[in-house]
Simulated scan of single mutants.
Amino acid sequence: MERQNDFKNVPNLFEEILKKKWDEIHEGPKVFRYKIKEINEKYLQEKYLIQLNPDRGKKRREPEAIHSLSQPFDETKFNFMKASSNEILLTLINGNEEHVFLVNVSPIARYHILFCPYMGSCLPQTITLDSLELVVKMMFASQDRDLRIGFNSLCAFASVNHLHYHLLFEKRTLYIEQVKWNHLKGPVYFKEDYPVPAFCCNIKKLSETINAYILIKYLVDKSIAHNVLITNRKSQETGVHVIIWPRKKTEGAKQFTDFNVAVCELSGWIPIYDEETYRTITAEQIEDELKKWKLDDFFELCEGIKSLY
């Protein structure tokens, strides 16, 4: 297990360390629930990247039943403190806090990693300003343009109620990274004509992370479920982009159908669990499923967000 004494010392090393260690664990026995080899994939209408991953639908851990965005951490349920030490890729130490990178034992794709900031504090799955600053700093530091960082809130297909982000590596540009945005107010932009409308904050220096956090906290306070993508691949603009989808809530345990609508799917990256569906699904069917999660009062929400800036 690699340990580093402060995030600021990691920038030139962390992707190399994570990928090398991930490959070592993946090649060994008994850690991953299934192995990721070559994944069948295709594009639909130059929008949706479709990937076939039937093992994720069949072999992953049973998700926790989630009923509220304010559901507290429950030590009796699965949490990342219970993960095997064999799953740890890298630990960053900052004073008494440890920020831990784990393999996702049921990966969407190669190098699917879980980042658990302040892991020992056992925080629920709600974005904090400190944790958001950490992942934005990570994105600024990254030399790998394939890296994206995702977050699923409670009631937005989060599977574990213990604060964590998803690190995902994909060489293709995603649909949401190609769209043009409209200015809402201050640092906030929005995209109405997308299957699930979204907000975006462009962060050019770390101190601007607060702009995205204010919006996210507003959603949490209003008990609005949300998914978040952090990327530096949006169009030709510089900086880190925090894309936020407010959406209708899910309740209970995650149910695996042909695909679930979480941060990857909203971004245009669709892991499919069924081979027949992979062969026959259309872009229109994908958009119909995505639109089911669109908030009915998005423009009312826009007015509330304008009042924040």
Rank of each mutant, 00 (worst) to 15 (best):
E62D: 11
L147H: 07
S223F: 07
K180S: 15
Y118S: 11
N12S: 15
H67I: 11
R33D: 12
E276M: 12
I281H: 07
R110Y: 10
P124V: 00
N9W: 10
N86C: 09
K292S: 08
P117Y: 02
E276F: 12
P246D: 06
V228Y: 05
Q285E: 15
P187F: 05
P117G: 00
I17H: 03
K204V: 11
F140S: 02
L44C: 08
K58D: 13
W245V: 04
T250P: 01
I214T: 14
V136K: 00
D130T: 07
K234S: 10
W245T: 00
H112P: 08
P187Y: 05
Y213T: 00
W22V: 04
V105W: 05
I305V: 15
F256Q: 05
E27P: 03
K222A: 11
F7S: 05
K185R: 12
N53H: 04
A158T: 03
Q285G: 11
S121V: 04
E75N: 04
L69M: 14
V188D: 03
I17L: 13
H166N: 06
D288N: 13
N211V: 01
K180E: 13
F259R: 00
Y43T: 09
R56Q: 02
M119G: 01
E46W: 06
L129M: 09
C302Q: 13
F256M: 12
L129G: 04
P117T: 00
A65C: 08
D6V: 02
I127S: 05
T91F: 10
K58N: 14
E276T: 11
V261H: 05
F80Y: 15
K191N: 13
Q143I: 09
E16W: 08
I243V: 13
K58P: 07
T173Y: 09
T126N: 15
W22E: 04
E192V: 07
L154C: 11
D296P: 03
L114I: 14
T277S: 10
V31C: 09
P29D: 13
I39M: 11
H166D: 12
V103Q: 02
I244D: 06
H164P: 08
L102C: 06
L123N: 07
V242L: 11
D144R: 01
S267T: 05
G150N: 02
